[in-house]
Design a protein around this nucleic acid. Structure first.
Lengths: 147, 147
DNA sequence: CTTCATGCAAAACATTTGCAGCTGG
DNA sequence: CCAGCTGCAAATGTTTTGCATGAAG
């Protein structure tokens, strides 16, 4: 993935450039999104931020994440069951592999996605602007531990 | 797609076989799911059912759809923004192409999905059990009308 | 008849919003 | 300073649930 440190300053730079204030709470949220390799949920971010700023409201976390999403600095992975997850490292559509047991989310490399999109365009005549490609299963660790 | 009439009796048969009652409301919901080529939402089903049975509650529609989902006779396409959609014709995971303007949902044929899954397994070591593959864009009609 | 389904209304739950007071720059 | 942010609490919107009444088989 992109160097996390670089992502952090990219994200802070975008905020500053658009004249959004860098509050301590915002900084904490941005830091978690830029530096974590996983795909944290708002709840996870909230718990982390509270360690440094115990009075933080979860509404503030929602607002910051939503702002970063609007600025296209974070990719939102919404799930109908709730518990949406966020990717600050690759804020553009890309495939995911999700462990149904431990909820880990991994970014696979998938060269064949381009070919697939072409196949789809010629079959349906759609003009494709985005995608959401998720595979579900057991990660190597959970596969091993499974009964 | 599979013959809609056949799907209708398949679905009714499954209900009867499991000793679920075929009430008029259930029959109406099942009929819509089996015979419609589109991917109706609960709201759409509710509006249709009310034409025949005006006192029907939306809770009943939710319950019936949920029952059919549990029986694996309907595929639920959940969206984080809500307004989930349902497919009674192909109740197993398959790719979808969704028009962001008119919300139409189309089933493309995508032979390359199998290859993609293989590429993914060898890259991540996951054991894949399911997928959710959605492409978003403009359908041919909306593409033409777009300003 | 008896069990299961319906329909209403209340609950659940993640996310959003309104607003008074606080604070970054 | 003062526009914009925070934190609280109330609102939102979809889906679920509890329960009394009603109907399928």
């Amino acid at each position: 993935m992109a160097d996390p440190k670089i992502r952090l300053s990219e994200m802070l730079g975008k905020l500053k450039g658009r004249n959004f204030r860098i509050t301590p709470q915002r900084f904490a949220v941005v830091k978690i999104l830029a530096l974590s390799d996983g795909h944290p949920s708002v709840e996870m971010i909230y718990e982390e931020v509270k360690k440094d700023f115990p009075t933080t409201s979860i509404a503030t976390v929602y607002k910051t994440v939503s702002l970063l999403k609007d600025l296209k600095e974070v990719l939102e992975l919404g799930f109908p069951e709730g518990g949406n997850r966020y990717d600050g490292n690759r804020p553009f559509p890309h495939p995911h592999v999700i462990c149904v047991k431990c909820k880990k989310i991994v970014d696979p490399k998938l060269d064949s996605l381009t070919d697939m999109t072409e196949e789809l365009v010629s079959d349906t005549g759609f003009e494709i602007i985005s995608h959401r490609v998720d595979f579900f299963g057991f990660c190597p660790e959970c596969k091993r531990k499974r009964g």
